[in-house]
């Protein structure tokens, strides 16, 4: 039974709670409860935002002071140095993040890349029984792993991290100085392998470069890489 009376008192209770939250007087468990509620309660978000704006005049009491000069470098290192290397170098998947993720799953199972050049590995078993998504939170790649209990085989497929269907990883072939040629888009679902187009298969040989870039969902709209290269390397290197 929601009466206007009830509504009014709920509203004023929320006003006080939001004010206490913005003031910062709540003990930790209460703070966490408020933050949880803030995630999807739009009306409550607005009440908190209003208090934040109202009490912002107290912000003038914070005297600005320069942080030590090393600090920005430390922030950059934490944020960016975990990512992919800037230059194509070494093996494909030479991304540090990729291998860091991989070490989590190489415990005992044999690891196969689903995205290997055509026919290099046997066809995966039909019904993978365990699926896990590995990611670091800051990397542009997550790894979908599929474990088939029957064969003991674990399959690892890289996919674009972040919200589903927002970005894709696309595989490219680069021969010498030529423009990259698209080989396929990694599927964003678990059973991921790329079938290399038949006319491209014999072009996958020693010395050519494979690269993976982050693209809009579904792959590059232009036929050329448009996003950052997250991993690259030469075949046979």
């Amino acid at each position: 039974m929601t009466t206007p009376e009830n509504k009014r008192s709920d509203r004023s209770r929320d006003e006080v709670l939001a004010g206490e939250y913005v003031l910062g007087v709540l003990p930790l468990p209460d703070r966490l409860r408020v933050e949880h509620r803030l995630r999807d309660d739009k009306a409550f978000q607005a009440i908190v935002a209003r208090w934040q704006e109202n009490l912002a005049s107290f912000n003038t009491e914070y005297a600005a002071e320069a942080p030590p000069s090393w600090l920005y470098g430390a922030v950059e290192t934490k944020l960016f140095n975990k990512g992919a290397p800037e230059q194509p170098k070494g093996l494909i998947w030479s991304s540090l993040t990729f291998w860091r993720g991989l070490t989590l799953v190489t415990l005992s199972a044999a690891v196969f890349f689903a995205a290997s050049a055509g026919g290099l590995f046997r066809k995966p078993a039909a019904e993978p029984s365990v699926v896990a998504m590995l990611g670091s939170g800051t990397s542009s790649i997550s790894l979908v792993t599929l474990f088939d209990r029957q064969t003991g085989r674990l399959k690892v497929t890289p996919v674009a991290a972040g919200a589903a269907k927002s970005q894709s990883l696309e595989l490219w072939l680069i021969e010498g100085d030529s423009a990259p040629v698209p080989l396929g888009v990694f599927p964003d679902q678990g059973d991921g392998s790329i079938v290399i187009p038949p006319d491209m298969r014999n072009r996958l040989k020693d010395g050519v470069t494979l690269a993976v870039s982050l693209e809009p969902f579904g792959g590059s709209p232009t036929g050329k890489p448009t996003g950052p290269v997250v991993a690259s390397g030469k075949i046979g290197a």
Binding site: N59, E61, Y62, A63, A64, E65, A66, P67, L71, Y72
Partner: peptide
């Protein structure tokens, strides 16, 4: 913005 935010942290 870092000078202001550092001031907040210090205080």
């Amino acid at each position: 913005t870092s000078r202001k935010l550092f001031g907040v942290c210090l205080r």
